[in-house]
């Protein structure tokens, strides 16, 4: 069977303009919607809800973020520590960093992101340990309750 070759026929061209328009629209949307502050969030921790949990107007000066899982393990810098006491050297280190920058302990805020099912006693022990390392400002983090 022989096929005829169309050499002089019109070329079929796809109009790419709408697709590129859409692609750029999507990129622009994602670029504006992405938040790099999510770096301090952790999927292993599910925060409790509160209607009063509103984002702060200005960022904290020197935040020290500690995550507490429901099993009572602390996550610091992405690393899950098997015991609460293992956190102490890191807190000492944070204090040294502050002192190295000529800042007082009042400038630092310990942000506690505890799981909603974590035990209150463990949270209090965590706060107590931070206090023993001279931290005095704490921020108990909750997620905004947007209702049903």
């Amino acid at each position: 069977m022989r096929f005829r070759h169309r050499r002089d026929g019109p070329k079929a061209e796809m109009d790419m303009t709408p697709m590129i328009d859409m692609a750029f629209q999507l990129i622009a949307f994602f670029m504006f919607a992405i938040s790099f502050s999510q770096n301090e969030q952790d999927e292993r921790v599910m925060l409790p809800d509160s209607v009063l949990a509103k984002p702060a107007n200005q960022p904290l000066k020197h935040p020290v973020t500690l995550h507490l899982t429901r099993t009572g393990n602390v996550i610091y810098g992405g690393q899950e520590l098997p015991a609460l006491e293992r956190l102490r050297p890191y807190l000492v280190n944070e204090r040294m960093v502050l002192q190295g920058r000529n800042r007082t302990m009042e400038d630092a805020t310990v942000v506690i992101r505890a799981d909603r099912l974590a035990r209150a006693g463990v949270v209090q022990k965590l706060i107590q340990m931070c206090q023993e390392e001279k931290f005095e400002k704490f921020a108990l983090r909750a997620q905004e309750d947007i209702g049903p």
Partner: peptide, 28 residues
């Protein structure tokens, strides 16, 4: 490149609810 960027943003995008703090000042 446009599709590469799209795929990157699609995979890194997370819908997260807003968070807030309860500030407690409690020296030892």
């Amino acid at each position: 490149v446009v599709f590469q960027l799209l795929v990157f943003f699609l995979f890194t995008f997370r819908i997260a609810t807003q968070e807030g703090d309860f500030n407690i000042k409690m020296p030892l």
